[in-house]
Simulated assay, not measured.
Amino acid sequence: MKNVKSITVTTSLIFVLAFAACKKSGTQNSSPDEQTVALSAGRGVPLVPASGALLGHYYGNGTITETDARIGRRPAIHLTYYSWTDHWSKSIPTKQDLAEGRIPLINWEPYNVKFKDIVSGKYDTQIRLQADEAKAIGRQFFLDFAAEMNGDEAWGDHNPDLYVKTFRHIHDIFIARGATNAVWVWCPNNADEPGTPAVMQYYPGNAYVDWVGADGYNWGTSDSDDEWETFYQVFEDIYSKISVTGKPMMIGEMASDEIGGDKAKWISQIVPTLKEKFPAIKAVVWFDVVKERHWQINSSQTTLNAYRAMAKNPYFN
């Protein structure tokens, strides 16, 4: 989604609840360290749940308290957005997420910076500082750099070779500085921008990526150029392309409009589709905000009821 950071600053600064991760016994209120162990147990990739998938949220439609009251539970992942020079490891949202047991999903957006300058080393001092700050927090978190590179965000001007070099350059600095708690997410758009290189040309490689992902939306029929798509239809094509990496997958952003179909039904199909069609998807994040469309989970009462039921499904617990 374009220009998200402008709507993130206020809503992402308000935190008043704690996320309680499930212990092996099935009880709640495990510590943050226990949460990480439980999520990573028996897996070669960090933060992969032992079963089912993690539910995440972008809080653009009210405070965390208000939103979680609507949902009826506490999502495991909190999506926030930061610009190129932001010190996201030291931000209030990141600190409170870590203190309260949520997993930060840092969407790092390199606006107003040329990728060739990153690769040349021009920003290495800044990147080293950000890596050191990330290491200092001492906890695992998701780091999603330059998402939707194959879409209209066009990071690196749709130059896959430059994008890959940039991603690897930043990754290598983090590793060299010991910031191994950053869990690297590569998250393209669910569809390529017309006339641009195919999505997998942007893939940095398995040695540089921990999770693969995709952002996708059902745009409804508010625009005559769009048509209603089910949850399966939104992600069917990109799933088949990126699942070949063998990495756990994340839906980094998703939502549906109300116009053109049954949004409540759209939501009710998510868990069955994950189970039957998309087993590699281990996390999904809802983009809860009124923006280009009515993406919010309470755009109608029937929609909210469907979302609450989905969020309480054992697959997300």
Rank of each mutant, 00 (worst) to 15 (best):
G138C: 02
M149T: 14
N107L: 02
N107W: 01
V113K: 08
A131C: 07
S120G: 02
E133H: 13
G151T: 03
A154H: 10
D152T: 14
A131M: 08
G121P: 02
A131L: 04
G138P: 06
A147E: 03
R139P: 04
E109G: 00
V113G: 02
K122A: 09
E148R: 13
A131I: 10
I137F: 12
W108F: 06
A154R: 11
N107K: 06
K114A: 13
S120N: 11
K116T: 14
E133N: 14
Y111G: 00
R139D: 09
M149S: 13
Y111S: 00
F142Q: 07
K135E: 06
I127G: 07
Q130V: 07
D132S: 12
E109P: 02
N150Y: 05
Q126M: 13
G151S: 10
Q126H: 15
G151V: 06
W108I: 00
G138E: 04
D132Y: 06
K135V: 02
L143Q: 11
A154F: 03
M149G: 13
D117G: 09
E109N: 05
D132A: 11
D117H: 11
F141I: 04
W155M: 00
L143M: 09
M149Q: 15
A146F: 01
E109W: 03
E148H: 15
A147H: 14
D144A: 08
A147F: 05
Q126Y: 14
A147W: 07
P110K: 09
Q140Y: 12
E109I: 00
P110S: 07
